[in-house]
Design a binder for these strands. Structure first.
Length: 339
DNA sequence: AAACTACTCAACCGCTAGACC
DNA sequence: TGGTCTAGCGGTTGAGTAGTT
């Protein structure tokens, strides 16, 4: 607010971080813990502004961050949460504790937005706007089209997991080398007596389990539940329609339909259906906040603040809807004050 | 092989809310 | 009470890389 940027000072280094700088920063945080960022540059001798140190830590060096390919489960989570929350990347990231908001934002802008655009184009080329950035923008049309589709004839054979959907990160610069970072952090992870605030190690274990589950059980309860998830409310975010629509799209194509969009385009998104198989992971992730959900559902504006404080968001109706297997989707949508 | 284009993602910028003095 | 500072957020940029011609 009228204040000059912290990085305007002469001698403040910008640009990619070097391994040496990372080591210095990690060592310092190992000793003092994260926080009090203002003192970090002076105490460490780093020629970086405090903001840069904080960002480097939170977006890259912080333990428990998962880098690389997004799983279909994560992809589905992002799509759904973006449809529900908008571009609240920090809020979305709070549901994916191993991912940073920056990562999610990038992934959305570079991958998922395109997929949704293609979906839009497939749905109705006339509706496609060049700057459409949210999946909720084609809700009504999607809903309208969907209601004209056969809702009763789901064909699970068209559904499959695509574990190779994501791009391969072959960046060779230091900043993109996860090996460097893991080596850097290895000692700290072992030696640090402080438990990770976001229980990231636990998440890693549980998600690995979940992935294993996904691999061995691709048929999801979404599909088998015969519960069309967005039948009643025309204001249900389009990403949700997107998932359901694809069942029919794929079916139509299988039955000799058009070639508007290939199956592969949607595989990873479609595999969000495996979310329900991953409910164990979800619940383990969110158990710590379950008991707060009712309060915060009544006061949604507090959600963000809570996230700021402990990275553990409340489980309001939408989270429950996302996480619980046997929830009545239609009813919850109708009850939603958001739509 | 070189030039060009498209893509990715780490890092930066500008801004706001809230804490602190 | 008002000014300052910090932490955090979302949007944007640009260097590096991959793919294409």
């Amino acid at each position: 607010m009228g204040r000059p940027p912290c990085c305007d000072k002469v001698g403040i280094k910008k640009g990619p971080w070097t391994p040496e700088e990372d080591i210095i920063l990690v060592s310092y945080i190992q000793e003092h813990g994260p926080g009090n960022w203002r003192s970090v540059p002076t105490n460490t001798g780093l020629s970086r502004c405090s903001k840069s140190c904080r960002l480097r830590w939170t977006n890259y060096l912080r333990p428990g961050i998962k880098r690389g390919n997004f799983t279909p489960h994560e992809e589905g989570m992002i799509i759904h949460l973006q449809a529900l929350l908008g571009n609240k990347w920090a809020a979305i990231a709070s549901y994916l504790p191993q991912r940073t908001d920056n990562d999610i934002k990038n992934y959305w802008n570079t991958h998922l937005k395109k997929k949704l655009k293609k979906f839009q184009a497939a749905l109705d080329p006339h509706l496609v706007s060049p700057d459409s950035t949210t999946s909720a923008q084609f809700v009504s049309k999607s809903f309208h089209d969907r209601t004209n589709l056969d809702m009763s004839n789901n064909n699970s054979s068209s559904v499959r997991l695509s574990q190779s959907q994501s791009q391969s990160s072959s960046t060779t610069t230091y900043a993109s080398s996860t090996e460097n970072i893991s080596r850097l952090l290895q000692g700290w992870m072992r030696s640090s007596p402080k438990p990770d605030n976001n229980n990231s190690n636990l998440h890693q274990v549980t998600e690995d389990k979940e992935l294993h589950q996904n691999n061995s059980n691709n048929v999801d309860s979404f599909e088998n539940s015969n519960k069309p998830m967005m039948v009643k409310s025309a204001s249900v975010p389009a990403a949700l329609n997107f998932v359901s629509f694809h069942h029919h799209q794929a079916k139509d194509e299988q039955e000799g339909g058009g070639d508007l969009v290939s199956h592969e385009e949607f595989d990873s998104i479609l595999s969000f259906e495996n979310l329900n198989n991953a409910s164990a992971w979800d619940k383990s992730t969110c158990d710590s906040v379950l008991d707060k959900s009712s309060d915060e559902a009544a006061a949604p504006e507090k959600v963000h603040d809570n996230h700021k404080q402990n990275r553990a968001p409340p489980l309001s109706f939408l989270e429950k809807w996302l996480f619980e297997e046997n929830v009545g989707h239609e009813e919850m949508m109708e009850l939603s004050p958001m739509f």
